[in-house]
Design a protein around this nucleic acid. Structure first.
Lengths: 342, 342
DNA sequence: CTGTTAGCGCGTTCAT
DNA sequence: ATGAACGCGCTAACAG
């Protein structure tokens, strides 16, 4: 604020430029009704040419700061810092305040949501599995608090959401493994309560089927997205019977666990076992060898979600603000996958 | 701001209560000169009784928002989210804006600092190893940007800092292991460029010596705080020769790696090998069995650091604001340590 | 539909 | 050493 040009245009500049009062300009900026189309047009033009950006600080002195609730379900997820980073960055840009709440700290997910609402948040960001919970939506509806579903695989048409195509992501990884020459590919499921877990499994199975590859039941292990569950799953998959030459885990934490078990068994990764993850969280590049995975732009997605929530918090979802943003997934090939040993 | 009581006292209330003008009250609040001791006293009393808290928003409209630089060195550290959480929480409370920058994204640490300074930050928080780098301090000095050293084991008397007693923490863990009955205890070092790594090793050695326990060279392995280095260290320690019955790793990430290697070797934790970590990051309760570790209140420490930086950013360190905050460490006993098998 | 008035809670003049 | 007046950028209220 100090070193900047004195020339950040204010709403008065816009008003003068458009030949209206600052109040009218303000109305246009905030999408208020009772402004003729003509004037609105003129003001918008002025905003364009001047490059006007509302000053969130000044605004907050009058309207109060918009509180936005942000839940997170897995405190141990190595993805949390990216999520927070993106969210906070956008919050400070949009001048809103984040109230962060760990879902597991409450007896039920609904209790966590209720706490936030009672604390006065005017919009809320719902990560899985909350964004798939009808009870939560019913409560929010009754309280009139708008929401943004984050990373759900089953976005509701009437609710804002930002998500990725988990199905397609799983296809990319599976195809990568198949292209490498793998045939015996095992899969570790995520928490079945998350819609994303189901979509990832579907994508895996569909791609295998397309390639005429069988997926025996013994090659699909339960998991719940935690490292711990990955340990169990890996032991089961690698322990007895015919071994797969590749394991695709539904997220990086479980893939990291597979890596640990493989090392324990003296299996070389990737020559004796290829491992694929999903998310590209920091652990993916922490474990050795680094994990081939599907990158999910969590920070950007979080920023988008907060931005949408901030909008909803202002004009309580009057227009069709319930947008749906589909973020892009990319395959990140690293050292944990290779062609199977002949 | 909306749902709150209308009764958050303003500086005017304080002024009225003290029988002075709001201007004088403002001067007192901001530690400005030219106020008689008497008046200052009265105003401070009013602040106390009314429970006045300056409104960061309103203040920012006049002074601009204070930008505070926040470096972090290890993007993969599972501690990052706690660090961010504490930092952002305090930032929004104190009405300052955080500019986050990953040190490794730059060719040299100094370059990272320079970028932040050039972006206009008015104070900066320095985690290890930056807070032990004379070059960085020299540059900051020349630019007149105050700093807060974060988690250094060698705080400079003339610079603000928030830290823990790493030496004492290492003693706690070592004593815990000794009390359990362990005699052959190995240690994995942290990155020697971090002052904390050295202090932790010192604490370990001192406690061993006090208990008349030997620490053969073969029982001290190199590490650099990363999971990867922990893997190598653990393999070396557990691979050949006489095995220790307990390993104390200088941080949780490396302890987690020890756990992975132990599993690989078919060693039961804790009955055949006890593992101690340091930091109590999320991984500590992610791996199985959960790690006994030394908890460092990272979120609180980060909040404190940001708060101190915000103060420094206001009145550029005129008085002796270079405080030193010593945060408390606690031993968290979990499932990875037990008495050695007879 | 549009404009005027009146601040939000502070801190910066510049007087006194 | 202290205070009056003004304005930061924006928006509720209430006019018209």
């Amino acid at each position: 604020m100090s070193g900047q040009r004195r020339h950040t245009p204010t709403i008065h500049d816009v008003a003068r430029h458009a030949g209206v009062s600052s109040m009218t300009a303000s109305r246009v900026v905030n999408d208020y009704p009772h402004v003729s189309a003509q004037v609105r047009e003129r003001v918008n033009a002025a905003i364009q040419t001047l490059g006007y950006r509302p000053n969130a600080l000044a605004r907050a002195t009058r309207t109060g700061i918009a509180q936005i609730g942000l839940l997170y379900s897995n405190p141990n997820s190595s993805n949390l810092s990216n999520f927070l980073m993106g969210a906070f960055k956008e919050a400070s840009a949009s001048g809103s305040q984040l109230l962060i709440e760990p879902t597991p700290a409450h007896p039920t997910p609904l209790a966590a949501v209720r706490k936030l609402v009672e604390a006065g948040v005017r919009a809320i960001v719902l990560p899985p599995p909350l964004c798939d919970d009808p009870e939560v939506f019913a409560y929010l509806e009754s309280e009139g608090v708008p929401s943004v579903s984050f990373a759900t695989a089953a976005p509701r048409p009437d609710k804002a959401s930002v998500f990725v195509d988990d199905y397609e992501g799983a296809r990319m990884m599976t195809r990568h493994l198949i292209d490498l020459g793998h045939v015996d590919i095992a899969f570790i499921r995520g928490d079945a309560r998350h819609s994303t877990a189901r979509r990832r499994e579907d994508g895996f199975r569909a791609t295998m089927a397309e390639a005429d590859l069988k997926v025996p039941d013994a090659f699909v292990a339960e998991g719940d997205f935690t490292y711990r569950s990955g340990l169990d799953a890996a032991r089961q998959l690698l322990g007895a019977g015919k071994r797969p030459t590749a394991i695709f885990a539904a997220n990086d934490d479980m893939a990291a666990a597979v890596s640990a078990v493989a090392h324990g068994l003296g299996l070389d990764v990737p020559s004796e076992l290829s491992i694929g993850g999903f998310d590209d969280t920091p652990v993916a590049s922490t474990v050795w060898p680094e994990l081939t995975t599907i990158r999910q732009p969590i920070a950007d997605m979080a920023a988008t979600a907060v931005s949408m929530a901030a909008n909803l918090a202002r004009h309580d979802g009057d227009d069709e603000t319930s947008r749906h943003v589909n973020a892009e997934l990319t395959l990140v090939p690293r050292a944990s996958t290779a062609a199977p040993k002949a």
